[in-house]
Amino acid sequence: MIDENLWKDLEAPQPDRGRSTRRLFPESAHDIRLGVTHPGRRRMLLLRADARAADLVRPLLNDLPQTHGLHLSCSSLSARDFELQVSLTADTLREVFTPLAEDIARTVKDAPGDTVLEAAVRRFLHWQQLMRTVGVDGLGKEARRGLYGELHFLREHLLDNLPPLSAVEAWTGPEGTNQDFQLPACAVEVKSTVAKNPVTLRIASERQLDDTGVSRLFLLLVSLDERRGGSGESLNTTVDRVRSLLLSPVAVARLDTQLARIGYFPHQRELYDEPRYTLRRVDMWNVSGSFPRLVEADLPAGVGDCSYEISVSALERHRATSQEVIGLIRGTDG
């Protein structure tokens, strides 16, 4: 994991102009490095590849949109060697750049040699799109509630029962996995609502409640009271409390990466002091057997990417207990 201490080591004053670099993923066939320029101390992610990879990525570079605070370029080092540079150009995005650099580096470390630069640029484009989608107003209401619910489950269920790094690594939803949390003995999908008595729950796809390859699958509904002011927790307070429980810098870096992947950016913290959330209740259901759901195997050929709603009243006989879920998290329940 890339953390602030690694950047500070690279930023240590140097007598000569140039760059300090540190290679990432030494086991990778690709030369992926963090770099800091001297004397300017500009942070960079550096990726070297051959001419074939550079030729394939040029069409993407020609149409690359500009993003304030971030710059991407590709330059030749020799007739056969090229270097892709992702640079931080504005300190306001300093805390965003670390998860961005780590995400791109992890994406490309196992990529085929001729497509490694293309994979890096496409991942950079993904981050540009994420930042445009979030925009100046930050995450929308539904996204904020969803993030609060996931952080609540992380804090109250995982961090009480797992080592901090293992707990944060189980939070895989920001990476686009089918469920929000994936553990050795179970997977958990978390929904959040402010409805007083929710009638239905929206399921995003036919894979979200598909337990194929999963020993046990649980659906959680976090019911919240949401208001401006009052005694509840803001999203910022919740993030800070989770971070305070992570004793390892590596776990903190992992948390920050996942938050950034969702679109919770540190330079927009002032947007998340309101509203405040108060927990009303948490409902848990065991997703198996006759649980009402659509899964991929049920769909006719040619049908996919389905969202649907399930009736909360139909879930009563599938209830699970907190103790049941915690036992699986700890690995003490079969």
Results as ranks from 00 to 15, higher is better:
1 M>N: 07
4 E>P: 00
6 L>I: 12
8 K>D: 10
10 L>K: 01
13 P>G: 07
13 P>E: 10
17 R>H: 11
18 G>L: 03
22 R>N: 09
22 R>K: 12
25 F>G: 07
26 P>N: 08
32 I>V: 12
39 P>K: 08
39 P>Y: 09
46 L>R: 04
49 A>K: 01
53 A>L: 01
56 L>E: 07
57 V>H: 05
60 L>Q: 13
62 N>F: 12
66 Q>G: 14
68 H>K: 13
70 L>I: 12
75 S>Y: 06
76 S>I: 02
76 S>Q: 10
78 S>F: 01
80 R>Q: 11
85 Q>H: 04
90 A>V: 00
98 T>G: 00
99 P>T: 00
102 E>Q: 07
102 E>H: 01
105 A>V: 02
108 V>C: 02
109 K>M: 08
111 A>R: 05
112 P>T: 06
117 L>K: 05
124 F>K: 06
126 H>E: 14
132 R>L: 14
138 G>S: 11
141 K>Y: 13
142 E>C: 07
143 A>H: 09
152 H>T: 03
153 F>S: 00
157 H>K: 01
157 H>R: 02
158 L>K: 01
160 D>V: 03
166 S>I: 05
167 A>I: 04
171 W>H: 09
171 W>M: 09
173 G>W: 08
173 G>N: 10
175 E>G: 09
175 E>N: 10
178 N>K: 11
178 N>M: 09
182 Q>Y: 07
188 V>H: 03
189 E>H: 05
190 V>L: 06
192 S>E: 03
193 T>V: 04
195 A>G: 02
197 N>V: 11
198 P>D: 04
204 A>S: 10
208 Q>F: 01
221 L>E: 13
222 V>Q: 14
224 L>Q: 12
228 R>A: 15
235 L>E: 07
235 L>M: 06
237 T>W: 09
241 R>Y: 06
244 S>D: 10
245 L>K: 13
247 L>H: 08
247 L>R: 10
248 S>P: 04
250 V>P: 00
250 V>C: 04
252 V>C: 05
256 D>H: 09
256 D>P: 02
257 T>V: 06
261 R>T: 05
263 G>P: 07
263 G>R: 05
264 Y>K: 08
266 P>G: 05
267 H>R: 10
267 H>N: 12
268 Q>E: 11
270 E>L: 13
274 E>D: 15
279 L>E: 15
279 L>K: 14
285 W>V: 15
285 W>E: 14
286 N>D: 15
287 V>C: 13
293 R>Y: 13
297 A>L: 12
297 A>R: 13
300 P>G: 10
304 G>F: 08
304 G>E: 08
316 E>G: 02
325 V>F: 15
329 I>V: 15
331 G>S: 15
334 G>T: 15
334 G>H: 15
